[in-house]
Amino acid sequence: MTRAEIQKIVTPILAIIIVLALWEFWVWYMGWPTYKMAAPSDLWPAFWQYRELFFINAWQTLWRTVVGLGLAVVVGTILGMIMGLSRVMNDALYPLLVGFNAIPKATVVPVVALIFIGQHDFNTILVAFMISFFPISVSIAIGLSTLEPEYRDILRSLGASRFTVFWKIALPKTLPEFFGALKVAVTLAFIGTNLVEIVTPHGRGLGSLFDSGRIASNYPLMFAVLIALAILGIVLYYFVVALERIFAGWAERRPT
């Protein structure tokens, strides 16, 4: 490994350790009991005690987030294509989407829970999807509608079909914007999943573990769940980054 590579790994780890140390010191300095603010050293015992629950619930949260996000990618891309390729559809759909996106999803959760009563997996996926498809469709729509006409013309002048132009030029050209939006969407989907898990009492997912910590006044457990959520969020985010490297790595400027 080169120096630069080692530095790339060591720097964030160091930053995390520093933050944890400051947090620990702060709690110790203020003399706070665990029911006011847990210190990092309280978290590991809490996690270890409930480690099985952590893994079961993390898996619940993870798969529902990923399915919701997958749905958001499919539907968001289709909506984005419709809006990006047709001006009329763009004018028609845009205000609707903006309005839909402006509705706080916390208010949607009880509505969805009432409509599809008892369908906890479905509800969770639905909310994760609803909260995360918007940035994807907007980015795809903008990417497609701002395609310079010359790009289209080099292929259209050879008699290429609209689909060929889309497949060979418009789609790959939109990929960097798509992945930018996906990085936002992955975090949003995660929030959506947890929202449902915390608000509706079904006892599944890290959100519900958080809620049981709250009910049992087990503050270290609540904090441990928050850290687990953060780790899961980081894992999902970097998974998207890895996909971006593979499919849109060309958009990264190489040092020349």
């Binding site: 310079e148 010359e150 790009y151 013309d153 080099i154 259209r156 002048s157 050879l158 008699g159 030029i169 790959p172 050209k173 990929l175 849109a248 060309w250 958009a251």
Partner: peptide, 18 residues
């Protein structure tokens, strides 16, 4: 209609970055 026997070049070279 467009035909295959035309070549075009513009002020913007519009090369595909990928």
């Amino acid at each position: 209609s467009p035909r295959k026997t035309v070549g075009m070049a513009f002020q913007n070279p519009v090369l595909l970055e990928w």
